[in-house]
């Protein structure tokens, strides 16, 4: 039990359960099938975006271009199908390839120049977004194959949408990567302490490039899932990803300095943010308030993390005195 208490996600889990019960007591509409369906859609899309940012936080960097990659892939994916009447599978593959290439560019430049990933991804954010606008001239693509539309709309059974399948698979794969593979552990080691990880023989080039490539791939998947959901490819897909992409991992207990990232906690962060946003809508609160709320949640999470660190420091001090 005490081991469970120490987990990042334990507290969050409790908050989620009690919060949901409380909300549905006040507003039974909260657990209506339609609302659950909407909730699951928003969770599944944000999950992919949050994972894309989380893996970069794990190596102690940040990726501002997540949304720009998602947007570029989204319009390429739909553009290939509409303008070049390509079938779905090759369009998806090319979409993934673009995401991979974008991530590789981010990672390669960052690690080879030693310039902060923040500046590199700020520059690539404008490059990818500029390409997006240059190609589309800010016009959306509307012609989406029926199969894609179906995938974005249909339900497996009850309120569960098809769209949740891919995010769940991704979350499981990410958990395996971060907890059960040497690559994932190396990433965390690198995020924790670059020098010491290099001293024990971890290649920083490999780690940084892999992390950015995975981030690019996930952003690409996120972009294509949004296309399925919206049933069209607009150039502004991904514009609003920045805040939520950081909110979920931070709220979920990741420390931005890197090296302490938890896939389950991030998933809980996503669910928490979605439930709160949804609850605010149900209680008919101004949508701008949702944004303010998200900001305060991040600050609160940051303070809680700080407090926990402080308590841990004190505890270790007591032991060393003995």
């Amino acid at each position: 039990m005490s081991a469970l208490l120490k987990k990042d996600w334990f507290g969050l889990g409790l908050v989620l359960i009690f919060g949901s019960i409380l909300i549905s007591l006040f507003k039974p509409a909260f657990i209506s099938p339609f609302n659950l369906y909407v909730l699951m859609l928003s969770v599944s899309l944000m999950l992919v975006v949050a994972m894309s940012q989380m893996i970069i936080i794990a190596i102690g960097q940040m990726n501002l271009s997540v949304g720009a990659i998602g947007g570029l892939v989204a319009i390429s994916f739909t553009g290939l199908m509409e303008v070049y009447s390509m079938s779905i599978l090759p369009a998806v593959l090319i979409g993934l390839l673009i995401g991979l290439a974008c991530g590789f560019i981010n990672g390669y430049i960052t690690v080879k120049t030693g310039i902060s990933a923040f500046i590199i991804t700020l520059a690539t954010l404008y490059i990818f977004k500029g390409m997006n606008l240059g190609i589309t001239e800010a016009q959306p693509f509307y012609e989406i194959p029926e199969a894609v539309k179906f995938f974005g709309n249909a339900k497996i059974f009850g309120p569960i949408p098809y769209l949740v399948i891919i995010p769940i698979i991704i979350t499981v794969l990410m958990w395996i990567l971060m907890n059960r593979t040497s690559l994932g552990r190396y990433m965390l080691a690198y995020g924790n302490n670059v020098q010491s990880s290099e001293l024990i023989g971890i290649s920083s080039t490999k780690i940084v490039i892999y992390a950015h490539v995975i981030s690019g791939l996930l952003a690409a998947i996120g972009g294509m899932l949004v296309v399925c959901r919206l049933q069209l490819g607009t150039p502004n897909i991904g514009d609003s990803w920045l805040l939520p992409s950081f909110a979920a991992p931070v709220i979920g207990g990741a420390i931005l300095a890197g090296g302490k990232v938890d896939v389950i906690a991030t998933a809980f962060g996503v669910i928490l943010v979605s439930i709160i946003s949804q609850a605010l809508v149900i209680f008919k609160i101004d949508p701008f308030f949702v944004q303010i709320f998200l900001g305060f949640m991040i600050l609160l999470a940051v303070f809680i993390n700080r407090y926990r660190e402080y308590r841990e420091e004190r505890r270790t001090k007591v032991f060393s005195d003995e």
Binding site: F118, A257, F288, Q291, G295
Partner: peptide, 27 residues
């Protein structure tokens, strides 16, 4: 103040205050 007190990188703090300031302003 928040940056110094929490010891978190100002990126995260100002990301949060960005949406708080802008949200309050719009509201």
């Amino acid at each position: 103040f928040v940056t110094v007190r929490t010891g978190v990188h100002s990126f995260i703090v100002t990301l949060a205050t960005m949406s708080i300031y802008f949200g309050f302003m719009t509201l």
